[in-house]
Amino acid sequence: MTKVSMTVNGKARSVEVPDNTLLVDYIRENLRLTGTHVGCDTSQCGACVVHVDGQAVKSCTMLAAAAEGAEVTTIEGVAASKDDLHPMQVAFKENHGLQCGFCTPGMIMAATDMVSRYKAAGKTLDEPAIREELEGNICRCTGYHNIVKAIADGASKMA
């Protein structure tokens, strides 16, 4: 057991967990933030994507202990305040970029990450780039058409 401390969605958290606890289990089971999902066990579906120190990572493929001292943002913390929505959340709704909603939190976390990376690098996030960037996020419902539209729209809303 190790006491693992990190800041999650702006709030300092500290929980004693077994060393083999995955970050996603720390988030879901210990902190009861259940918006982060688990859709596979081979690090491919991306339903578990969160931001650790500003980078999108798969929380199912990282030990909680390895996030000691980190700043973690989950879907529950992506909006500026409780009554607000992040522009990318708005874009997913307005473009019907979700159906069952299970992959959606990971999609939104991956989307905001790709937008900031492209912006930082001064690159254009066009449709082929969005499709390529989504390699690690699987959706079974939407056929991706509206997710791609949503991310393009969200990117312009984030500008």
Binding site: V49, V57, K58, M62, G136
Partner: peptide, 9 residues
């Protein structure tokens, strides 16, 4: 290599 989240780690 992998996808963006994999490349980050």
């Amino acid at each position: 290599i992998g996808d963006p989240a994999v490349r980050a780690r």
